[in-house]
Write a protein that binds this DNA or RNA. Structure first.
Lengths: 210, 210
DNA sequence: GCAGCCATCTGAACGGTGTCAAGATAAATC
DNA sequence: GATTTATCTTGACACCGTTCAGATGGCTGC
């Protein structure tokens, strides 16, 4: 989440309204979901007038951008943590896949905003491909480490990364659909279900055999 | 689409406004995208008052339901067509995966609505798991046919189906992000890219080896 | 054929939304 | 301390989803 800037009695040109707005937005998102996230509601939550946000964001889209941006950063560090505390390269791969899905499941509204923004502009945020610490680049690097004996072509590495990303994203979304509840229970909980599907997805457990 | 009910000079209690509204909605969706799809815009497009839709749909959500429902039906038949005109079981598998992605890419706004509705209610439409002709069940059946020599457990069949569904959905969404344009070109077009990723996803080309 | 009924459609309204222009207020600069 | 500049508020606008009272016209039973 980040530390809220609400503590110091606000200097009455509010200190850092931009931060406060994003925090307010994330609070609403967690408490009431994506449907309740209006600019006016955010302004209310931050105790400012409906027009105040326009001094910090060009429009609602830019506020959503900021929220989504934080979401991607949070995802980056969630995956970095897991990757740090992991063992063999191939276990790292399962761990990183599970970490992605966990993040999506623990922050459903935020995850929704992240991809809604992306879908609206037909583009993931730039930092995803450019920043070496990004979740996406971490996946690529993990695949490379796993395969570093058998040298893999640049292009196959990229394709494998995309494949893994597609699979993880798809799984994250499917897990939220109640259709699969029975199967989850049958396997003894969502975590088992998750790992079972990851295994069927192959690329998360071992090098794809020719 | 479906044949529009616009031909016969409308009997002035309009004939079939429900149909006309869904058609109007799909027209807007195709022409202006999901952001332009308001109830009022649909009513305008169908040349009725803003309140008229409420005699056929309880609220906007129900109209979206109807649109999404048609989308899933269209997906069902798109995949059925491909499956009918296909060769070996394992080729069928690639073909069906490609068909799913093609549908999503050719009807991006409709596909978006289908999943937006699902995300809002945390549920895919019931018909997906119940109707034997549904896209989902077609995937399951195709997997079963491919594996009918090596008998596969009920639960593994279901897991494999879900895995494939996750992968196809994930890929369909990723393909719309401009990040991957360079790679598409490098591989000589989206179709090649698509099939390359499907191949990396393993389950679409051959039985997952133990 | 006509009376009456009922489904359907319209018009006007309400509260909510995103957004903007004009003015008030406080912080920063000189 | 005066002036500039950034920030916030007030009030407005158009659009949205939704509702309700009333107009319209197709259907049913006589």
């Amino acid at each position: 989440m980040r530390e809220a800037a609400t503590a110091e009695a606000r200097p009455y040109h509010h200190g850092d309204l931009r931060r406060a707005l994003v925090d307010a937005a994330r609070r609403i998102l967690e408490a009431e979901g994506v449907g309740a996230l209006s600019l006016r509601a955010v302004a209310r939550e931050a105790k400012v007038s409906p027009a105040a946000p326009y001094h910090h964001f060009k429009d609602k889209g830019e506020l959503l951008d900021a929220i989504a941006h934080e979401g991607w950063e949070d995802l980056d560090s969630a995956m970095a943590n897991v990757r740090a505390s992991a063992r063999s390269p191939s276990e790292k791969m399962t761990a990183i896949g599970a970490a992605y899905v966990h993040f999506a499941r623990e922050n459903p509204a935020l995850y929704r905003v992240m991809y809604d923004v992306a879908r609206d502009k037909d583009s993931l945020p730039d930092h995803v491909q450019k920043n070496d610490d990004s979740a996406y680049c971490q996946v690529r690097q993990t695949i490379q480490e796993r395969n570093d004996d058998a040298s893999v072509s640049e292009i196959d590495l990229e394709l494998a990364t995309i494949a893994a990303w597609c699979a993880a994203h798809g799984l994250a979304e499917m897990l939220s659909f109640k259709q699969f509840e029975p199967l989850k229970e049958q396997l003894g909980g969502e975590e088992n279900f998750l790992r079972a599907v990851l295994q069927h997805l192959g690329m998360f457990s071992k090098v794809h055999a020719p």
